[in-house]
């Protein structure tokens, strides 16, 4: 049964012009689709082809193309295959549609992407901060956020040399640091 349904998917999708269909192996299918058609595709996959499990939504920041790539991984318990639907949206203003009405788990992933990439999902039930509750800087998973530069700007390097260590060193012990290791 699984094989037949899979082939049916091939037939179904090969006639639609706006999508690119690529079969990686018998269990993995990659679909590239325009952003305006993606919710319709997911609805089709869920309603007609039993892809009921949203495994994950991933966001990739392609900063050179000035685009975000969103990947929706949906799994079918009947045909045991995974469809990864890729779509690209502009980084600015970075707004897209929520698929919460189709897949409940989307709420978590959309909230996470909003927090980490600053991408807003219209219609998502919950866009409140979750992990980075005390963070006011730019979304940290964007490629233009440089963690090391941020650390150097925000914190100052301190020599750790407490009195008890000085006492030990006065007696000839302690930590020896090579001159080239001193920052």
């Amino acid at each position: 049964m699984s094989k037949e349904l899979n082939l049916w998917l091939d037939d179904l999708l090969k006639d639609i012009k706006i999508i690119q269909f690529k079969r990686k192996n018998s269990r993995r299918v990659r679909i590239d689709i325009a952003p305006e058609a993606l919710p319709a595709l997911l609805e089709l996959l869920q309603g007609r082809a039993s892809y009921v499990h949203l495994s994950a939504i991933t966001c990739v920041d392609w900063i050179e193309d000035d685009e975000f790539e969103l990947v929706y991984h949906v799994w079918s318990y009947e045909t045991n295959s995974l469809v990864s639907a890729h779509t690209r949206i502009s980084r600015d203003p970075g707004v897209y549609l929520s698929v919460y009405d189709l897949y409940t788990p989307a709420a978590f992933f959309e909230r996470d992407i909003h927090e980490m990439f600053g991408l807003y999902f219209e219609g998502s039930p919950d866009m409140e901060k979750f992990i980075l509750t005390e963070w006011n800087g730019p979304p940290p998973m964007r490629k233009d956020f440089d963690s090391e530069a941020f650390v150097n700007q925000t914190f100052s390097w301190e020599e750790y040399h407490p009195q008890w260590l000085k006492d030990i060193e006065a007696e000839g012990g302690g930590i020896t640091t090579r001159p080239e290791d001193v920052r």
């Binding site: 994950a56 990739v60 978590f108």
Partner: peptide
Amino acid sequence: YYVVSNGGDKPYRVHVRGPSSMHAVQ
């Protein structure tokens, strides 16, 4: 794991889908 490489010596993007991200939240 969703892993993206752009041909470099470091990953371009790694996304971890832990099962508890569903169980512990929603």
